[in-house]
Design a protein around this nucleic acid. Structure first.
Lengths: 211, 211
DNA sequence: AACATAACTGAACGAGTGTTCAACTAGAAA
DNA sequence: TTTCTAGTTGAACACTCGTTCAGTTATGTT
């Protein structure tokens, strides 16, 4: 009896770093399930298998936890796409296609992610930490695209163009297509979005896109 | 004394249609001010100058009121842009530029509107009424763009192209640029976004955009 | 084995939420 | 003028929310 009690402790202690990581993961799980409606300290703690009070033990406020969750998810998705490009061989044009394939895959084109992003957009309106994190991530995204465009433009057969504007336009179009597809997946097929992007890049390379 | 009381009624009675209109306007005002955080029945009723209970007298639930507010705001903005195109003269290409000017004006490119839209996107995840309203509005927007592209493509000097895909691409880019600018207005100038769109249309007209 | 300490618990708190409904009353109809 | 109806009120209700904190306990150190 005494032994039984001794062998089944009521909880396990983790280091703050471990716990924070678990809490961030639980937060993302809750967001995936129900968006902002399911995002209470009670549902997060239930998901993580800990008590409500522990959240405020590791985070000054719930918002700080969400900010951490955003940071992780945003960089995860960004790196997932960019890694596929980095590890793919081929010439700059082929690498651009790899990039599109990664972006228009179900890993990014996912209504669950929009549900999460809506919460983050709302947060970035009132949390400096989240806004800073967003600015950093989206800037990194655009600079990667600009880098790919520059690689393209430096090919001997391709005339140079305004890489910055091209990157702004493409990242805008990708974001917009992603958003519209998530809001209404019947409005167009992912392959159609991909086709539009490919055509645009071809157009830029032909020199007829006067930026 | 009796007269004074008689001459200052405690409230004025309005027709349901009038009240609903006032409530919708109060809802939009609240959303502009603080986004979803300021959107309680109490703040809406205070803004409209009526009691809390009246909202549920005219609407089955708060969500139905918000759905009405979305319907109004979405169609208002859509028509504001399209009206400027409709009443503008000029050839199809010039009308497209008018369209861009209207879209990249401060009337649409406004962080207050994003704050409102975030609430609506969140709602369309759980309210069929809002989702239907969104689908209708965004479909109308895209069809208007498709119409403009068709007008362009039917010009004698312009080769025809896939109008549907072009409309999907352009509306995606417009939405994406709008979103990114609202999230971080320092990332690019509205004029730059406009320039990108203009260049794209020119590209389509030149026939080098292979859709 | 006893101690120290920091992770951890969960009841309690106060503020805020949407909705309900009995009572009130403005204003048209009789 | 009186009656009637339906627009209007606001207190009350039954939640959910994030945060607090006194008390508990697992675990490494002495």
């Amino acid at each position: 009896m005494t032994d039984t009690l001794k062998n089944s402790p009521k909880f396990r202690r983790h280091s703050p770093d471990e716990r924070k990581k678990e809490l961030v993961e639980a937060t993302i799980k809750c967001l995936e399930k129900k968006g902002s409606d399911g995002l209470s300290v009670r549902s997060i703690s239930a998901e993580a298998g800990i008590s409500v009070g522990l959240i405020n033990h590791h985070y000054p406020s719930k918002d700080d936890l969400i900010a951490d969750a955003y940071e992780k998810l945003a960089t995860d998705i960004l790196h997932h796409v960019l890694d596929q490009v980095d590890k793919s061989g081929g010439n700059p044009r082929e690498r651009m296609s790899t990039f599109f394939d990664a972006y228009f895959s179900s890993h990014v084109l996912d209504q669950k992610i929009l549900r999460i992003w809506i919460v983050f957009w709302h947060m970035s309106d009132k949390s400096d930490k989240v806004r800073l994190s967003h600015d950093k991530t989206s800037e990194g995204f655009r600079q990667k695209i600009e880098r790919m465009f520059r690689d393209l433009g430096e090919l001997p057969e391709v005339p140079s163009f305004n890489y910055r504007l091209a990157a702004i336009g493409l990242s805008g179009m990708l974001d917009g297509l992603w958003l519209e597809w998530c809001l209404n997946p019947t409005s167009f097929e992912p392959e159609e979005g991909l086709k539009i992007c490919e055509a645009w890049v071809d157009c830029l390379m032909s020199g007829s896109f006067k930026l």
